[in-house]
């Protein structure tokens, strides 16, 4: 029987969306493999977060709580994940490919000599084995991978897997106590600086990105206004990041962020191969570009061939109107 440990990330004592996605996917895998799931939460004051997991069908939650764990520490967290996996006899460990999951997972992989498949976009259990699919070359290709070591690890790309609510399950909690000494806190977060409460492009369900076709930084508000009306995030092409209109943290593409929102609207972006690499897995793509031959139209589901400076205000107004009904 397979035993899956899912590390679920929380921030400010609340479980992150990607955490629910991880829990639900682990549960589905356990059902398909004929095994069980235990969810691990690390931090402090997590009991209400733990009970939330019941509504996602999770029956068992392990809590590693300590005031010192309130702030993230790469070394401490990865030790807790690895030691908990050993303690509970887990043969499969699932994490989100979030910033934290990507930071922890390789260290756990080394500790447990476990093969790790990172950033999976599909994962399935067949005949007792797990195979995962992950994008390579920034999404220009996909590989199917299996893990050959006894302990198997997978991280899941955020926003791709569904968090599924279920009725009638209460999560039972149990404390895990992994002894840590000072050297286990070798790396320690001192402070988290949130960039003015802005929604990150990788976490948004709708992304509106602007490119050089906007003509100047003074027009970027057109992108921001639309993103705001849609409850989404504003992204950027590298051309305008390099030009200093936008910070690098907003850049979408091969050397920026990879996003896969439900809706991606590219405004005045040509669709260079490096840009497409970061957004081509979006579920629905809209392009607004005045050049009908721009490569972005080759992957767009819908397009308007026109001047973005004229289209954007009208588009924002139209959405405002429709969404207020």
């Amino acid at each position: 029987m397979s035993k899956i440990l899912a590390f679920v990330e929380s921030r400010d004592n609340k479980i992150k969306n990607s955490g629910y996605e991880t829990a639900s996917t682990a549960l589905k895998l356990a059902n398909d493999l004929g095994g069980e799931v235990e969810v691990l939460l690390i931090g402090s004051n997590l009991s209400s977060a733990a009970s939330e997991l019941g509504s996602y069908g999770i029956e068992k939650v392990l809590l590693a709580e300590d005031a010192k764990l309130e702030k993230y520490s790469t070394t401490a967290y990865s030790k807790i994940v690895a030691e908990t996996a050993k303690l509970r006899g887990a043969d499969t460990i699932i994490l989100s490919a979030s910033a934290m999951g990507k930071d922890i997972s390789p260290r756990v992989s080394a500790k447990l000599e476990a093969g790790l498949v990172a950033d999976c976009t599909e994962i399935k259990a067949e005949g007792g084995n797990i195979t995962a699919t992950r994008p390579v070359y920034a999404g220009k290709a996909f590989i199917d991978v299996k893990v050959t070591s006894p302990v198997k690890m997978f991280t899941l790309r955020p926003n791709v897997f569904k968090a599924v609510k279920m009725d009638g399950v209460t999560a039972e909690t149990e404390k895990v106590d992994i002894p840590l000494n000072d050297s286990d806190y070798g790396v320690q977060v001192k402070e988290v600086v949130v960039s003015n409460e802005k929604l990150d492009v990788t976490e948004a369900d709708i992304v509106v990105s602007g490119g050089r076709g906007l003509k100047g930084p003074e027009n970027f508000y057109l992108v921001e206004d639309l993103a705001k009306v849609l409850g989404g995030a504003a992204g950027a092409s590298r051309a305008i990041v390099d030009a200093g209109w936008r910070p690098h943290s907003d850049q979408v593409g091969q050397t920026g962020k990879t996003v896969s929102p439900s809706l991606y609207i590219a405004v005045g972006i040509s669709g260079a191969i490096q840009h497409l690499a970061g957004m081509s897995s979006s579920k629905c793509i809209v392009a607004i570009n005045k050049d009908k031959d721009a490569p972005i139209f080759q992957i767009a589901d819908y397009g308007i061939v026109a001047d973005a400076l004229e289209i954007m205000p009208a588009l924002t107004e139209e959405f405002k109107k429709v969404l207020s009904n």
């Binding site: 992989s109 093969g115 590989i143 199917d144 991978v145 070591s149 139209f297 992957i299 061939v305």
Partner: peptide, 22 residues
């Protein structure tokens, strides 16, 4: 190695999108 690649594929090509207007 601890992982094994079973195969590589290219993304499914999308049907051509719709130009809604100009």
């Amino acid at each position: 190695n601890k992982t094994e690649i079973l195969g590589m594929s290219l993304p499914k090509s999308k049907p051509k999108g719709k130009i809604v207007g100009t």
